[in-house]
Design a protein around this nucleic acid. Sequence first.
DNA 1: CGAAATGGTAACCTATTGGTTACCTGTTCG
DNA 2: CGAACAGGTAACCAATAGGTTACCATTTCG
Lengths: 136, 136
Amino acid sequence: MDVFAALADPVRRQLLLRLATGPARVVDLAATHDISRPGVSKHLRLLGEAGLVRAERRGRERHYRLEAAALQPVVELVAALRGPGQAGSRSPRFTDQVLAGLDLEVRRTTAERTTRDRGAARPGRDTHHRAEEDSA
Amino acid sequence: MDVFAALADPVRRQLLLRLATGPARVVDLAATHDISRPGVSKHLRLLGEAGLVRAERRGRERHYRLEAAALQPVVELVAALRGPGQAGSRSPRFTDQVLAGLDLEVRRTTAERTTRDRGAARPGRDTHHRAEEDSA
DNA sequence: CGAAATGGTAACCTATTGGTTACCTGTTCG
DNA sequence: CGAACAGGTAACCAATAGGTTACCATTTCG
């Protein structure tokens, strides 16, 4: 099962969100998600096939943990659909950390230049993200 | 049908990628995607339910166009799973246009600062933005 | 007008999903 | 040891998805 199909089920999305807060066992997941234990087991198997989850054996228990790197195809698709004309749509894309870094960097440096140039450096339009109503 | 389920089908993803290059009619989509016309119609109806697509009547034709804004829940989920501790998952998110702008902006202004601080570095015309091989 | 083109819907069929219960294996520990 | 716990798998079942063909409505245009 590919990552898109894996994300299509609401129960699996809930499981992933739960795992985003830290590893968990099957019984824990079953207890908090109103589904039988074999049901959870099956979902975890599918998530494992999609690479979204990894199991770590510890004694008789099995600790499942999230593998966020497997979300890459989703990020790429979204990028391709959101910005068809310009930037990339191919290859890795930016992570949120990088985004935050860019944002900070731009705000700081544009502020510097604005102060230095006294208004000559196109002030306001910087990080105000919108662009959905593009070309038309 | 929610947006996640809508993206689960490979044919629908192909249709969306096609629509990302511009509006298209049902017959056009059917011609290039090895599926019957009613099949395309059904997929488009589901995509419409998910808000990912909008139809515009023009005579007896119907032009379907992509609605990228409907991808928001996907972006939010990915953000929540990727960076539970750090960045966002809140608010609109960045578009590729903005990303390209940020990239350019940072490179230019950091080059300026470097030039200003250290003396002789590369001149500011580095507009060759790339950022593909980072993050992992 | 009437034929052709666009495209939506209905009816139908098969494969897949998502859930269950029942059962089995392996591990811990009183 | 043996009971209890963790968890995977098999068998089964109802519902849904995705595809098709057939049919219908609307619009264009010779």
